[in-house]
Design a protein around this nucleic acid. Structure first.
Lengths: 183, 183
DNA sequence: CTGACGTGAGACATCTTTGTCTCATCTGGG
DNA sequence: CCCAGATGAGACAAAGATGTCTCACGTCAG
């Protein structure tokens, strides 16, 4: 039976998110295939990570598309975005920590595209008066990634309920820890 | 001349924060010593990471002490805390991503102590009415770690000015991205 | 039925990293 | 000055991961 490339990538992402140093053999076993077959589909560890990166970028872009970032209030767009991104957070958390590994090499342009779209959303919110202007769009974008990763990790560690993930991330990102004075 | 253990640990932290997979040889060269000497001071890679963990915990506990978390408004205590933690964020960011590696093994009890102190601070803020109650203290603690790591990474990548680090982290954590309606 | 195709299992050489050891060199205190 | 202690450089084997290959087996289409 032909191997399901998508399913292999998903189980690899799940394993590598928990243990970033997992060997090719462990990845193969986690996917329920042999190391030889894994190698037939992905030339090496690098190729596997690159494929995961492509998958992660594709999922994020799909989430960004589905969230319709240009529609309605920016805050609502952020809420839709986090909800859409939720299923990709495991993979995203892994790639977020893995990015630092590609030191000298150029990073995938997909990240730049995503950054641009997210940054534009936060800038739109600032220009509409919804978001404060002392936090730069670039930082808000970074913070979103960081909170998604922290949230994913907290969920796997059992410190946050899976159902609360989106609420915890979105509410902290938008509203912060302080109680609102106004209505 | 006897090796300065502290200085070795600091340069190791700086390198490993950028490249988590650096070899012992790279760590040694970064510290300006030979691999043999590095090995005389740290039995192996594990021992090195453990020593970095001890250093990170010690720095965090010192910062927590200096921030006097029990004094005055909880929000002000958080501001002091982030300011005090700023110098340790590089090391903290590395340890934050490295923690996932100690899968089966027990993790250093120092983290549990720190978690307890930070969680207590957020709980105090909730009980005093400063902080909202729909974000759990455990999540706020995780989010603080995540934002510190994201901020440290954003600074090294040049996306955030080093001088803005504490402001960006604290303001997002406490106030969020939305503009305040009230005064 | 039969053959092509993909897979699993394992062998194998290679490469990298690691941990240990030896020896020459340097430095600082007595 | 002289020696003890620490360091640097390099050799070395062991361990682990990787990439490649072969061969047997199962499956599916023709």
């Amino acid at each position: 039976m032909a191997v399901d490339r998508e399913q292999v990538l998903r189980s690899a992402a799940a394993l590598l998110t928990r243990k970033a140093t997992a060997t090719m053999d462990e990845v193969a076993r986690a996917a329920g295939i042999s190391r030889a077959t894994l190698h037939r589909h992905f030339a090496g560890r690098d190729a596997l990570v690159r494929a995961l990166e492509e998958l992660g970028i594709a999922e994020c872009e799909a989430a960004v598309d589905a969230a319709r970032l240009d529609d309605g209030p920016a805050a609502e767009a952020v809420r839709r975005l986090v909800r859409e991104l939720e299923s990709a957070t495991g993979l995203l958390a892994f790639l977020y920590t893995e990015n630092q590994l590609f030191e000298g090499e150029e990073q995938n342009e997909g990240w730049a595209r995503l950054d641009a779209r997210l940054t534009a959303l936060f800038r739109r919110g600032q220009e509409s008066g919804e978001f404060r202007i002392d936090l730069t769009p670039a930082w808000l974008t970074e913070a979103l990634y960081g909170l998604l990763a922290a949230g994913a990790w907290a969920v796997t560690e059992g410190r946050v309920a899976r159902n609360d993930f989106a609420h915890m991330v979105v509410e902290l990102l938008l509203g912060g820890a302080l109680r609102r004075e106004g209505p």
